[in-house]
Design a protein around this nucleic acid. Structure first.
Lengths: 245, 245
DNA sequence: CGCATTTTTGAAGCGGATCAATTAAAGTGG
DNA sequence: CCACTTTAATTGATCCGCTTCAAAAATGCG
């Protein structure tokens, strides 16, 4: 898919969503990047229980982060991983991962030298704070999702998910006016929202019939954003800019 | 409740759960602490929508962190805040809080000079990394809770919650052999677990009747830890040690 | 084109919500 | 310290949203 891309040629970095780089910073980050990894759709990038493990930035493609529960075939998808997002921070910081990450589409990742993450904190303490800020923003997103799962019904959850993914894609320049690529299956949606596959199908049928949103042949079309946002109490995503490593 | 306590006299710090301090570190932290705040039970420490706001460490007592949803009276309690936990990191880093924090019992908090948090990163980069590690551990806990809310039924959720709170108290030296203080009402449990007050009551009645656990007059008694852990797929909490600011 | 996977749809059952009535507990003021 | 008021916990009856199971339709893929 991609040969090793120098950071100066990164297609993501010019996006307004990502914080611009100074000269020295650019060199430092280029130095952190040790390789480019390409994986096929459905390939596992990180497997729960793995020890150590690298730190990655997803460069292109989609992935999911998930946990399996109690021996059984219960899966909770924790997040959709999009270009610019970290993969493997838990593995890298805590040494052991409890979640898995699987590519949804063909994907490519920048492999970061973990060693240099501590150097980053020492030599660029302001980046340490930027990173902290980013993580705290993610925590807020987690808070919202706990509310979504704990207190919203099926249709509200679905509306929230569709809008959030669309907006995150838009920040990365991966969305059109009111549509975007959407490689999640019904089963994926069910496992993210704590619903059954059958019920996901019914909720989506309802949205399509109301002309609020529809998913067709791998594409999400948002037809009535306002209606969805009102239903879910959706407030938008963190505007950035965010650091990109 | 407490007059300003010097960090050297802190009752929490000697606990094995918290990372021991060097001489210079102790001074730095003492310097960060600018005041001690005491609040009554039910008082709000942080209100959603608040701008700015201090950074605190809960010193004594219990609190809850929660969000209200969509104008209505739907509340999601995101976490129980226990001594040693941060309060107000979101407010401090992002400038605006979307959750509220309310004292459950009379509580006292150490007020930290926010300014010095960035200095901490500069002057003690290893502490920056410790803090990062702590936050990543919290993220893992969030991951687990998303799984709990998304995929476990009422009894499983309750079992998970009781065990986690008990273990967190134990780490802080606030639990006895198989019992601990428990100031959460049925409504609180319902709002944490995404259940109704009535159903919480039924689940607890069932646990009591099975002699697994019971809550009586503000005290939680864990009678059959193994049974609860098996039911919930509970694996324990992060062992620490953790930094204490 | 034909097989495998996914999606859709229907029918039935269940877990938990809701509502309402009762009981118990916790404050409050005299 | 007791009667009164308020708030929270319990319990039963009913209802609804979602699950489960199963079969049919659609879609993708080699």
């Amino acid at each position: 898919m991609h040969e090793a891309v120098p950071c100066t040629a990164c297609w993501l970095r010019p996006r307004a969503y990502f914080r611009p780089l100074g000269e020295a910073e650019a060199r430092f980050i280029q130095e952190m990047k040790s390789a480019q990894l390409t994986v096929a759709a459905r390939a596992k990038v990180i497997e729960a229980g793995e020890v150590g493990g690298s730190l990655y930035t997803l460069y292109d493609g989609w992935a999911i982060r998930y946990r399996m529960l109690g021996e059984t075939r219960r899966r909770q998808i924790l997040d959709v991983v999009l270009p610019g997002d970290f993969v493997g921070l838990e593995a890298h910081i805590l040494g052991l991962t409890e979640h898995s990450v699987q590519a949804l589409t063909p994907a490519s990742l920048c492999v970061l030298r973990g060693r240099r993450l501590s150097e980053l904190f020492e030599q660029h303490p302001d980046w340490g704070l930027s990173l902290l800020r980013w993580i705290v923003e993610d925590q807020r997103r987690d808070d919202v999702w706990r509310s979504v799962l704990g207190r919203l019904d099926a249709a509200e959850r679905m509306a929230y998910l569709l809008l959030e993914i669309f907006d995150r894609l838009e920040q990365r320049g991966m969305a059109a006016e009111q549509s975007c690529r959407f490689p999640l299956s019904g089963q994926h949606l069910a496992d993210m929202l704590g619903l059954s596959r059958a019920h996901v199908s019914r909720v989506l049928a309802d949205f399509a019939q109301r002309r609020w949103a529809r998913i067709e042949s791998g594409t999400l079309l948002i037809e009535a954003r306002a209606a969805l946002a009102r239903l879910a109490g959706y407030q938008g995503v963190a505007p950035g800019p965010r650091v990109l490593l």
